[in-house]
């Protein structure tokens, strides 16, 4: 089965690599996340990133809480684009039409506009890939459980296991 999932993840990763190659002197890292902020893939620019940098070694999982926090504290409605200045770079985060997020870390504010154009260019492709990923994953994995399980059922399982194996 899941060669489809593996293939889609590889395509997402290729897109992230292409984004870096669009501006290799500016983009330090690219993260592609699902709509809950879980990182599906990330690519770091080895020319600009020190291999020992712990932030880049462990992909962040803060996007959903960041977005939720902003929406609840600021009267700005839904958040589709976030720009944040840090000491070591600038984060640009863009919503991929509620299918997920793309986040890049760039070197300087001079390239913010250019990078935004680059990100928008990849939005359609990533949207298609994330939708496919979600549908393939759910198709393969979802179990429909609609009959209520009782304590007696569990008791039967325990007794069944004990009958098959001397504990």
């Amino acid at each position: 089965m899941n060669s489809d999932i593996q293939r889609i993840i590889n395509e997402v990763r290729s897109s992230a690599e292409e984004i870096i190659s669009e501006s290799p002197d500016q983009i330090r890292a690219v993260y592609i996340m699902d709509r809950e902020g879980t990182v599906i893939t990330y690519v770091t620019n080895t020319i600009l990133i020190n291999a020992g940098n712990t932030f880049f070694a462990a992909p962040p999982r803060f996007i959903s809480s960041l977005k939720g926090g902003l929406v609840s504290t600021l009267p700005i409605g839904d958040v589709n684009y976030i720009l944040m200045q840090g000491v070591d770079g600038i984060i640009q985060l863009m919503n991929i039409r509620d299918a997920g997020y793309i986040m890049v870390i760039i070197n300087s504010e001079a390239s913010i506009g250019l990078i935004r154009i680059i990100l928008e260019k990849y939005t359609d492709r990533l949207y298609d890939l994330l939708r496919k990923l979600l549908s393939v994953s759910e198709e393969e994995v979802i179990e429909v459980i609609n009959v209520e399980i009782t304590p007696k059922d569990i008791e039967d399982v325990i007794n069944f296991i004990k009958s098959k194996a001397v504990m």
Binding site: I9, T38, V39, L133
Partner: peptide, 11 residues
């Protein structure tokens, strides 16, 4: 593996 973490909740 972390890179399959998007599947955890689905499974």
């Amino acid at each position: 593996q972390e890179r399959f973490s998007f599947m955890w909740k689905i499974i």
